[in-house]
Design a protein around this nucleic acid. Structure first.
Lengths: 348, 348
DNA sequence: ACCATCTACGAAAACGTTATCGACAACGAT
DNA sequence: ATCGTTGTCGATAACGTTTTCGTAGATGGT
């Protein structure tokens, strides 16, 4: 019996988009001309240009990114793929976002393995889904896998670079960073320095161990397997190895421990306390990452900081240059920095 | 003289997009049919559907979100506007991102006042720039201003709601949260409870003060202006008022302080220490927000937590319902929760 | 006057989809 | 046979831009 006619008042009538056509008609020119004015193309007189701009202003016209993206073949959006929104990626995002200002690009953040969907390789799927269409390029943070360059769009990874066939990368100098930490301890006079490793599947963990070994070598100190333990990125995973190492008989027990990440380092401090060891008087501890918690630990943790902000900025820089066709460095390595706080002191 | 022909080998020839046309040709059907298959529209036989799907798979076809966005008038992207990527917004993003799984929507994060561009009202500009085209709807986090509904797209704010004319909102129950904190202190036996306010321009700060006053009233305790100080969201801004309050003569000095945010609360603990007051023996302290630092303070801070994850999820839920035309609640208020840690105890 | 050269502009063809609508065949019912 | 009906399918017109290319008019040199 016919439709309910009153319904139409319910959906508030959002005003119809004002298109380039409206502007053209109002200004008495063709759409082509309007487009040229917008994009500051050559070939339009001063007079008409002003007139068109006036109309644009008056009508409040905004060009449709979607339509123009379709025509040119780029969207002006770069994607950032992170596993999760935690402080580490947040700081990177901050750097990227800051560097984005004024470039005309937008940032599309995509979190991968939220929830139970912890399938490795989510990066590849996300990239192929978004990359074909929505984004011009991507920055992927600590990928769970090697991104091969088979993707449609340029990619730069924030990750230690592996081989010549991998994607472009930006990372902090993990080896030198670790050496900074160990050199600091050596400089304080420590001779028995333990190492508590990080997540074994993370390449950065291996590099930090390498830095540890190199630093000891250079200092003429021997590397003892008894002082090296593998840990993880969770407090629980660090507890047992930390306790083992600190329970060695005096004389064998390290006077200082370098942990591959702050989470583990803080656990070391805790375990030390439970064993009656004072930090830093009886045991010095250095971490890596400079997570927010490290500042508030007791004592505040001496640690190695990655220049996350700059890394984000650099990654974006690389990506943009790639998008603009300039061929540049394929790998950028930024220096890590030692942050001296209260958890280190000369040995007793 | 002709062009340099060798150049073409330099730009690696990214394979031409495979379009819906290629699929149609290969499958021996029309593009319309392919489109119907993709979108699971009614009116295509089982046989052709399978054939088309096979071809799609074989060719690795991915439909262009840009083109389809142009045709339908929606992009399947929702934008999240945050002032900055800090733990607070990161947690919200996490919730939103988790809730996004399976909806087919993507998340476009946009950070507003990075760098020196701290103009209030950036939300409006960002919304009008993105909203017209790139995103279907937006969630804006603690806007610096009231978002009027004049925007082209649906918006829900994560913010205390103000009046009937504002946008849809989701927030934590600041008043009840504050009452939780004060009730806790009252329950412990405190009678002189101080309040250290937050950033005066934040509506949440006012609501927390209101909760403080209500709780005292209900407990039959008088509200004394001498025990109320205005602070801010920076440690420095909290120091002077905290020192004033704690320097009152014994008998007037509060035995407990409720601070409108953790930053200030931690400063209170610090100041207390410098005045020779032990926490929690001589002074109980409760904060608000449950920032990461609160867990690592000494002693660990008792505080009120906002259910950020759920708030993000709820905001997205509201937005999606709005996008799908269902009219729902315009304002959602989620309960805050008291997190009891070590900074509170009965008075001496 | 005449041609050559510019400049300013517009018509029209893309870009890759989706939605409408009409065509056509097959089929059952009269 | 005739007439709906139903079930598949394809032409085609959008969606709002950008870009190419042709053309008309103005300019300048002989």
């Amino acid at each position: 019996m016919g439709y309910c006619q009153g319904m139409s008042t319910l959906d508030q009538p959002r005003p119809r988009r004002v298109t380039i056509n409206d502007v053209a008609r109002e200004a008495g020119v063709s759409v082509a001309t309007v487009s040229k004015v917008i994009n500051e193309r050559y070939g339009v007189s001063e007079a008409t240009s002003e007139k068109v701009l006036a109309v644009i202003d008056q009508l409040g016209y905004q060009s449709s990114l979607i339509a123009s993206s379709l025509r040119r073949k780029s969207t002006g959006v770069i994607g950032v793929l992170v596993a999760e929104f935690e402080p580490y990626s947040a700081e990177l995002l901050k750097g990227i976002s800051a560097a984005l200002h004024g470039t005309g690009y937008e940032l599309l953040a995509h979190a991968g393995r939220t929830g139970a969907h912890n399938h490795t390789g989510w990066e590849r799927r996300s990239l192929s889904r978004l990359g074909h269409t929505l984004i011009d390029g991507a920055i992927v943070v600590t990928p769970s896998m090697i991104i091969t360059d088979e993707t449609t769009i340029p990619v730069v990874a924030i990750d230690p670079h592996t081989g010549p066939d991998g994607p472009m990368t930006v990372d902090a100098d993990n080896v030198t960073g670790a050496r900074l930490a160990v050199d600091h301890l050596v400089g304080l006079g420590h001779r028995r320095i333990g190492f508590l490793g990080g997540r074994p599947d993370l390449r950065s963990a291996g590099l930090r161990e390498q830095g540890y070994r190199e630093a000891l070598d250079d200092a003429g100190l021997s590397v003892s397997d008894k002082l090296i333990r593998v840990g993880g990125y969770h407090p629980e995973l660090a507890e047992a190895p930390a306790r083992e190492m600190l329970s060695l008989p005096t004389g064998e027990r390290p006077t200082a421990v370098f942990a591959a990440n702050d989470i583990s380092a803080i656990k070391v401090i805790e375990v030390a306390g439970s064993l009656g060891l004072r930090v830093p008087e009886d045991l010095s501890v250095v971490g890596f990452d400079n997570v927010p918690e490290s500042r508030d630990a007791t004592p505040p943790l001496t640690t190695v900081a990655q220049p996350l902000h700059e890394m984000g900025r650099a990654a974006l820089g690389l990506l943009l240059e790639l998008l603009e066709g300039k061929h540049t460095e394929r790998h950028l390595r930024l220096p890590a920095e030692l942050v001296e706080r209260g958890s280190t002191a000369p040995p007793a």
